[in-house]
């Protein structure tokens, strides 16, 4: 086992008067791929910044059982890849790799260079000469090749085009399988990464909305589709998080501790019972405007 275990207890982070995170209690097991989801401003970046010792919060933060802040042994093994890059801007990419090789004890230079070829990056270029997609790719390379026991990717693949993202997902899964470690993926492209995740943590407005096994989450949601009154009859008693009407047809999304017998009954009554993709579930749970409208 090489990955780090993460734990926060009543973690609160404020920037002056604004509170970015409130009372976060989180446990993420080592050697798994965790998804960290949330709308813009939900506090994902703040949470990852605290785990990466970029800033301090109130409450307890433990990485592999230790306070990571200014802890050389932990910090060197915690890698947060941000869209901003954190690179030596006036140095060539190859010099940046040498710098990282010094900074990261497990950095694999050979792997980094093979990834440079995969993503077609010219090592002689400087970071400021890269396009957005190339900069994202270089960030991904840094995160992968650092082989840090805790590696966090904060929206790093947003700048990549679709084929580059496919390569990125492939490399993450492949390298994770070969070198297990704790990986935290944060992304708005939820449908693309949904099945890569073993756990899903959703932050909403600075609070922890849920942190669950992806499998459990998958079976906790269902859509019921059919004639409106039949749908309504079967949806009563279940926690409805979303409703959509298309003419006489209604689709409701139910979420929670579902009554499987009731769902089977719904199916017998001619309703279509379907899975709720993680992205839809995320939208239902975090679209506060719509939730307030509905209630």
């Amino acid at each position: 086992m090489t990955g780090y275990r993460l734990h926060t207890d009543n973690l609160t982070v404020s920037y002056g008067k604004t509170t970015a995170l409130t009372g976060i209690n989180l446990d993420l097991a080592p050697d798994r791929i965790h998804g960290l989801l949330g709308r813009n401003g939900a506090g994902k970046t703040t949470l990852m910044s605290v785990l990466a010792s970029l800033r301090r919060g109130q409450g307890t933060v433990r990485v592999e059982g230790q306070d990571p802040f200014e802890n050389e042994a932990i910090m060197q093994n915690v890698c947060l890849i941000r869209e901003s890059g954190d690179l030596l801007l006036d140095e060539k990419l190859t010099t940046n790799l040498s710098f990282l090789e010094d900074a990261r004890p497990r950095f694999d230079r050979t792997y980094a260079e093979s990834l440079m070829a995969t993503f077609r990056l010219d090592p002689a270029k400087k970071p400021q000469a890269l396009s957005r997609g190339q900069a994202s790719a270089f960030g991904a390379i840094v995160g992968l090749a650092s082989r840090a026991p805790l590696t966090m990717f904060d929206e790093v693949h947003l700048g990549m085009d679709a084929p580059a993202r496919q390569r990125f997902y492939h490399e993450v899964l492949h390298d994770f399988a070969e070198h297990p470690r704790t990986i935290v993926l944060s992304s708005h492209l939820i449908s693309e990464i949904a099945h890569m995740l073993e756990t899903v943590t959703i932050l909403h407005e600075g609070r922890l909305l849920l942190s669950n096994e992806a499998d459990d989450l998958h079976v906790s949601g269902a859509t019921l589709t059919g004639a409106a009154e039949v749908v309504d009859r079967h949806a009563t008693g279940q926690q409805v998080v979303g409703t959509q009407d298309l003419g006489p047809t209604r689709q409701v999304t139910v979420f929670g501790d579902l009554d499987e017998a009731a769902l089977a009954a719904a199916e017998r009554d001619g309703l279509t019972v379907g899975a709720v993709p993680l992205q839809d579930l995320f939208i239902h749970l975090t679209d506060t405007d719509r939730a307030e409208e509905a209630s």
Binding site: Y169, H170, A177, E178, H195, M196, L197, E198, A214
Partner: peptide
């Protein structure tokens, strides 16, 4: 293999 399956279908290797 688990790795091949995971990368081919883009799912978690543990799954």
């Amino acid at each position: 293999s688990t790795t091949q399956y995971a990368t081919t279908y883009r799912i978690n290797p543990a799954t």
